[in-house]
Design a binder for these strands. Structure first.
Lengths: 150, 150
DNA sequence: GGGTATTTGCAATAAAATTGCACGGAACTG
DNA sequence: CAGTTCCGTGCAATTTTATTGCAAATACCC
């Protein structure tokens, strides 16, 4: 993992649709050598995957929200059970167990408020071990970065 | 935007490194026709970009945290000023203005606690208009999904 | 310095992307 | 309903890219 690898990773985190020839030219390597590096980075797992990122608005998920959840029972198995229920929901894009005043934070991508309503019924009823939850509707997205600067 | 477009988007959100020939085969189209669809989806902005997703642990960002921030002054210009400072930080991967008891939520990707310490000094000192902030260290990542199911 | 392992560039080959073109179905019009 | 247009499709030819073998160059270790 040298300087050229890091440059390649930075470039591919920004735009992975560029051709190998193009990347090789930018970092000053031959296409074959550049290709071997990117293949090595993928096999070693540094590059986890290559994906298309959609425009959420054009894909029909216009409402985003964060929900901080406080559980009633705090054992490991109770935590896991709630997380399993939460991550099965399509509207739940991120789910974290966290320290602090609450136990779990979820990020939601919603089509409309009706979807939020029905989701709350499924996730935050008595059987799901939720004591309280705090909803933060996202007013503005100032940054959403998948890249890790190297 | 028909059924085939949605299938292509689902496939590409999961793995955008597949060849056009491969995708065409899976959705039952000729390569040329399939290519024209994916090109149209990119030009129209439904596909925002194609990126490499790194394994954060193997890229040296092992600690994640969420920080809920309460501002002292709540005007639009004060909000914007704080967000501008926050998003300039490499460790800040997500930044949202939210409703609820706090005003801003940040997601952090950190190399170590020292980076957290120095970041707090820069973001949460007097000049940045922060009244209080609540740190939630992420203990477990149960789900982190970039895809939007169509 | 000698020896080993790794990385590089070149060239040949295989595979994929891209484009022109004609066909066929859907929608629209008179 | 016939005529017309528009759009998407598949085929085939062309261009571009990815892939691989190989020899030279480089870095590394003792």
């Amino acid at each position: 993992m040298d300087r050229i690898d890091r440059r390649l990773l930075n470039l591919m985190q920004r735009d992975a649709s560029r051709t190998n020839v193009d990347l090789a030219d930018e970092v000053g390597l031959s296409p074959s050598s550049c290709l071997r590096r990117t293949q090595r980075l993928r096999k070693s797992g540094v590059i986890d995957r290559i994906v298309a990122i959609l425009n959420p608005a054009k894909a029909g998920r216009v409402i985003k929200a964060l929900v901080a959840v406080e559980l009633k029972l705090h054992g490991e198995q109770h935590m896991r059970r709630f997380l399993d229920i939460a991550i099965a929901e399509e509207a739940v894009s991120h789910a974290y167990a966290v320290t602090g005043e609450t136990d779990v934070v979820l990020m939601l991508r919603l089509r409309d408020m009706e979807e939020f309503d029905s989701l709350c019924e499924r996730l935050f009823r008595d059987q799901t071990n939720v004591a309280r939850f705090f909803t933060m509707m996202i007013i503005r997205t100032a940054k959403e970065e998948t890249a890790i600067r190297l």
